[in-house]
Computed example of a mutant assay.
Amino acid sequence: MKKSKVTSIDVARHAGVSQSAVSRAFSRTPTQSGVSPETKKRILKSADELGYRPNAIARSLITQRSNIVALLFSYLDNQFYALALEKLCIELQKTGFHALVFMMPSTDEGVEETVSQLLEYQVDGIITASVELSSTLVKFCSQREIPVVMFNRFQEHEGIASVTTDNVSGGRIAARHLIETGHRRIALLSGWERSSTSRDRKFGFEAELRENGHRLYVHEVGHFDLKRTGEAIRKMFGDPNDAHPDALFALNDYMAIEAISILRSELKFSIPDDLSVIGFDDIPLAAMPEFSLTTLRQPINNMVTNAVRQINELVRKNIVEVENISLAPKLIERRTVKQRR
């Protein structure tokens, strides 16, 4: 015979309290009308003795909140996003949310269909990383009062919060460092050209070169993709008769490390003697001795904290106006840039 399920009413009777006190004792979100420590201890003791576990689905029907935040990622082979996913999940759990991860297309194709599917899960909010949203989707989420926070992306849509690194400033810092170390034939390896990160880093880099009397020696698109990065590097450096660049700025470490690997093993370049390389992100692999990559560090912990704080405040309706936060990058000097003066 199937054992009957223990309910919050059973716990309330056993502990000698009201059913609402049981609900408040198990609430993940503190309220002004919480229960005293002594009462909560008695309730939890009764629940343990009876084998009671709160029903999250039933609670969501009452509160009209699922306590689920959708995390949208387009790829995790880049260490930066794998690390960001881990940190976002941990930080969300601290604030009483559960993360529901959706893998998205690497471009903006098919995003609308996937987002429409995830909304069937009644998510309380959305954090997008490496994903751009169309105006239609932004309007769709706004009409349903589903807050959206963009992580490492920025779009000029009203009502959309964002947390990014100051990518324009990061591009300028990279260019300035190469100029100050005596480089003249400076190349750029950009990412997916419709992403805000690639666009802004490229803009800052070119602006700083131009203002210092320089121009790009050569530019190729790696699309934040290993295969496309390899093709771009072979195109830039594969002809031994060409005067090759003396410096390369790759718009993320993922592409920079792939570029270094091909340049060393296949094209027989010495880094940094033949070519200096700068990346962007400062992923753990960049600090490994075999790469020791000079790069621009994104303050990932600060980015995660601010993204989760915003989604929490927007879901709880503690704030009305969204924030677009831009944090300063930091140049991390290692051993892939040579002083050429």
Rank of each mutant, 00 (worst) to 15 (best):
M1Q: 14
K2G: 07
K3D: 14
S4H: 12
S4W: 13
V6H: 02
D10T: 05
Q19V: 14
R24T: 10
F26S: 05
S27I: 05
R28M: 12
T31Q: 13
V35K: 02
K41P: 07
L50H: 03
G51N: 03
N55F: 08
T63Y: 06
A70G: 08
L71C: 06
L72K: 06
L72W: 00
F80T: 11
L83E: 09
L85V: 14
L88G: 02
C89H: 15
I90L: 08
E91L: 11
T95D: 15
H98I: 15
L100Y: 11
P105H: 04
S106K: 13
G110V: 04
D124Y: 05
G125I: 04
T128P: 07
T128M: 10
L133S: 00
S135T: 12
L137P: 01
C141H: 08
Q143E: 14
Q143G: 10
P147T: 00
F151N: 01
N152L: 03
I160Q: 07
V163A: 04
G170I: 00
G170P: 07
G171P: 09
T181P: 02
R184P: 06
W192D: 03
E193W: 09
E193S: 11
S198M: 04
R201T: 02
E206M: 15
A207K: 01
E208I: 01
E208Q: 05
N212M: 03
G213E: 05
L216T: 00
H223E: 15
G238T: 10
P240E: 00
A243R: 13
L248D: 01
L248W: 02
L248A: 03
N252H: 00
M255V: 00
A256P: 01
I257N: 00
A259V: 05
I260K: 06
S261W: 08
I262P: 00
S265W: 09
E266I: 03
E266K: 04
L267A: 03
P272Y: 06
S276P: 02
V277H: 04
D282Q: 08
D282M: 00
L285R: 01
M288C: 11
M288R: 13
F291H: 02
R297D: 11
I300D: 04
T305S: 12
N306R: 14
N312H: 12
E321Y: 14
V322N: 10
A328E: 13
R335H: 13
V337Q: 03
